[in-house]
Write a protein that binds this DNA or RNA. Structure first.
Lengths: 158, 158
DNA sequence: CTAAATGCAAAATTTTTGCAGTCCC
DNA sequence: GGGACTGCAAAAATTTTGCATTTAG
């Protein structure tokens, strides 16, 4: 709970930063861009373009899927969003740009963020230094989330 | 150099393990499967289905792309190969099943393996324990490889 | 006003599937 | 010989593109 203080104001803050970045980059602040960004920033589940499109039907009934794709690509170029590395056929996106890592449930495919400061500050192994210029390092964890474990347990009791 | 001893014999060993696994799993050892697996096991670059298909044209001129896809999917189900997590549109594969991590060059897209034993034995952060059952943890590093750095340096000195 | 962004439709890319013939066990 | 596997062709799924129209700045 304590980590969840004032989520709205932080979203609002994120929107302001977003608008600021768009102005600086000469990206027009269209209704579509604002809504797409807000929807992604609000999401915690790393949605695909199609999922975003579906969610935005209510607020933007005429929004087309190709605009979602185009917009996400533009945002990505301007480092406003990132594609999430997955094994999925659909690309997944996130607006969370600060350092974090992912846990993926192989059963329900849910992707969650987590933080790991001690890892972040650990130096890389020696032999990697000569590989080139390293920009970032991230951990991905795979497993089965509590929810899916419980479902399985319910179906096949021990 | 010392780590590179007898690469052929290790490929041969890997082929034997592969055949063994197929027999146990009642997977027929077809010419195609053997060649696809061998090609992937030999590769160090995490090729896509299409790349594998191209490389196999010489040894299997009639091999179809859909068989490559189907075969890789079968292998994956039997834990003989893994899909590599990327941000690419095409899926990439590897036959290397033991614990390792990836460095990806954002410029040339090359994916290389590396090992990091001290990371492997580091316990996960506390708050992840309650997430569910964790199967594995892997690091992905992004950056620009030496080769691409040099190319850039050559083109835009200073 | 004007260049950039959108929506539509059509295409391109990547992957999957149905079916008839082929091949391993 | 029989069921699994393959190749072909066609479809499905995902993403991209050309162009006319609309819109932000």
């Amino acid at each position: 709970m304590s980590e969840n203080l004032a989520p709205d104001s932080s979203l609002q803050q994120q929107m302001e930063t977003f608008e600021e970045t768009c102005r600086t980059a000469d990206l027009k602040l269209t209704h579509q861009r604002l809504e797409i960004y807000r929807e992604l920033a609000r999401a915690t589940d790393h949605p695909s373009a199609e999922t975003l499109h579906t969610r935005l039907q209510k607020s933007l009934p005429t929004l087309s899927l190709d605009t979602v794709y185009r917009t996400l690509a533009t945002f990505e170029q301007h480092h406003l969003v990132k594609k999430v590395q997955t094994v999925d056929s659909q690309a997944h996106f996130e607006a969370q740009m600060s350092q974090h890592h992912h846990v993926i449930c192989d059963s329900c495919k849910e992707i969650m963020d987590f933080h790991w400061n001690s890892f972040d500050s650990t130096p890389l192994p020696e032999d990697l230094r000569q590989w080139g210029a390293i920009r970032n390092k991230n951990v991905t964890i795979h497993g089965t989330c509590r929810k899916c474990q419980d479902v399985k347990a319910g179906k096949k009791p021990a």
